[in-house]
């Protein structure tokens, strides 16, 4: 379902050019749960942004569900992000002053059709992540773990096939991390494709396989050991 071939990415800052990704080859099948590890600053988030169609690669090819991503225009990429991908960020990124319910509904505002049962669906998702009693709470009234669970509900509301999570437990304590990871496990069991970026080997251990990002390339566990 996801197929990266020789993906490169360089950033140009004035005269200096930073080559972050130097030829990424990675395939992820539908329903797989893959963890991506690697030390800080070696391009994990950059890779995630390319996978999430937020950033265009400098070279190589990216096929998603058979579609040639480089050839799509900005509006088409927006539609793919909306329909096929659910993002979960380290910093939660919820709208301040907006209730958990409205935050979860936000992706549907940009969907092709706003479903009639949008509110029931969003409420159901909040219940499934254990926040049935926090539907009308604002972000300022929720704990970090709760915020991240609202964010997961938001990522799921438009029923995407792929969940991209960038260090979702990076800002959480152990107990909250545990809750979040359990949700990912459940989603995997329900058939979602999950790509999880993490620094925590325990989190990575929940995935089916782990890949390592080093010097701008992907290494598999066997190669690392």
């Amino acid at each position: 379902m996801i197929e990266l071939r020789d993906i490169t990415k360089s950033f140009h800052n004035g005269p200096t050019t930073t080559e972050v990704l130097k030829g990424i080859n990675l395939c992820v099948e539908k329903g797989e749960f893959v963890a991506v590890m690697g030390s800080s600053g070696n391009g994990k988030t950059t890779l995630m942004n390319i996978l999430g169609c937020m950033l265009r690669a400098s070279g190589g090819s990216y096929r998603l569900d058979g579609a040639d991503i480089e050839s799509l225009d900005d509006d088409q990429l927006s539609a793919i992000r909306n329909k096929k991908i659910g993002f979960v960020f380290q910093a939660f990124n919820l709208l301040e002053g907006t209730s958990a319910l409205d935050n979860v509904l936000l992706p549907l505002v940009y969907a092709e059709h706003y479903p009639d049962d949008a509110e029931e669906r969003a409420t159901g998702l909040l219940q499934s992540v254990g926040l049935g009693d926090r539907v009308h709470h604002k972000p300022s009234e929720l704990s970090g773990g709760q915020l991240q669970r609202v964010a997961i509900a938001r990522a799921l509301v438009n029923e995407p096939a792929i969940i991209l999570a960038d260090e979702p437990t990076g800002n959480l304590d152990t107990a909250s991390s545990e809750e979040v990871m359990n949700i990912f496990k459940r989603l995997h069991a329900e058939g979602k494709t999950i790509i999880l970026i993490t620094h925590d080997p325990d989190d990575a251990a929940r995935a089916e396989r782990t890949v390592f990002l080093r010097d701008g390339k992907i290494f598999h566990r066997e190669e690392v050991q």
Partner: peptide, 16 residues
């Protein structure tokens, strides 16, 4: 900016 980036990530087009 953060809110704008978030909306774009969730599928907002430039027009939106």
């Amino acid at each position: 900016k953060r809110e704008i980036g978030l909306r774009r990530a969730l599928g907002a087009r430039k027009g939106d």
